[in-house]
């Protein structure tokens, strides 16, 4: 058993990060996917996670969305523990009720969009605000229409996902996640399932988000050019650890570690 008293029940101080991974370990049986990960993401920062498949990069996002439990360490969001809750001055594993409250500040977009197929675009966007936040329908509709306009999907708002292209579905999925007003947005390989010619419409929306909103974002991507353009920081994951991280110019322009160099030249060769 891990000694939980080493973890603060709350982060305080002048520069509390929006997200903090503190010695986070994730394993499936004997396979360790993430090994004692420490990672801070500041408010408004755009951090991109890159790395070979199996390096644990998607797991980072999934743990933050509470889709995966963690085996060790603590994740904090906005200074408060996400994966744990305080009980008699120490952290214990969060129960379902606590998790529901804690993850409300996080939104996520998936590789395969995961829109609800039986609802139209606007119904997808209104579902969370109405059913979870308890917004009146008119207000939720207004908010959703605003967001669908922002992602350029307002003219398709009454279409079901089956009638939309992958790029269009992903843009609706981004609007749906934003409708919950998250503080942290997670993008998990959101362009990987798309045809090359529609990738631009999704990356365009994310660029707009970065430029116009002060959202904290974590993104896993294989689009190196895109990552280089819009990230504040890039983390290269290798075998469950951050092998190297830094500003995009330095990580892409002048990688220090051999693994990073190998990975980047392999990706370049494939392009």
């Amino acid at each position: 058993m891990e000694d939980m008293s080493q973890y603060p029940t709350e982060l305080s101080g002048p520069d509390v990060p929006m997200v903090r991974f503190m010695s986070v370990t994730k394993s499936y049986g004997a396979l360790t996917v993430l090994d004692s990960l420490d990672l801070d993401v500041s408010e408004g920062e755009m951090v991109t996670v890159i790395g070979p498949s199996g390096s644990g990069k998607t797991t980072v996002l999934r743990m933050l969305m509470t889709l995966e439990t963690i085996n060790g360490g603590v994740i904090y969001v906005d200074g408060k523990p996400l994966t744990h809750m305080e009980k008699n001055g120490v952290l214990v594993r969060a129960d379902a009720k606590y998790l529901r409250r804690a993850r409300s500040s996080i939104g996520m977009c998936f590789q395969h969009f995961n829109l609800f197929p039986h609802m139209t675009a606007i119904q997808n966007c209104m579902e969370g605000p109405v059913q979870v936040l308890g917004l009146p329908k008119a207000e939720a509709r207004e908010r959703s229409e605003e967001l669908l306009s922002m992602v350029g999907m307002i003219d398709k708002k009454d279409q079901h996902p089956s009638r939309l292209s992958g790029g269009q579905q992903q843009r609706v999925a981004i609007a749906r996640a934003l409708a919950m007003r998250p503080k942290v947005m997670l993008f998990d390989e959101v362009t990987s399932a798309l045809d090359p010619e529609v990738i631009g419409e999704v990356t365009g929306v994310i660029r707009k988000l970065v430029a116009e909103h002060n959202l904290t974002m974590l993104m896993v991507t294989h689009q190196m050019g895109f990552a280089r353009d819009i990230s504040d920081r890039v983390c290269f994951f290798y075998q469950g650890k951050i092998e190297e991280q830094g500003a995009p110019e330095s990580l892409f322009g002048n990688p220090q570690r051999e693994r990073t160099q190998q990975f980047l030249s392999a990706v370049k060769a494939a392009d």
């Binding site: 889709l67 529901r100 993850r103 579902e127 979870v132 919950m180």
Partner: peptide, 9 residues
């Protein structure tokens, strides 16, 4: 997973 991400009960 989408339901979890939207925090539906």
């Amino acid at each position: 997973e989408a339901c979890t991400a939207l925090n539906l009960s």
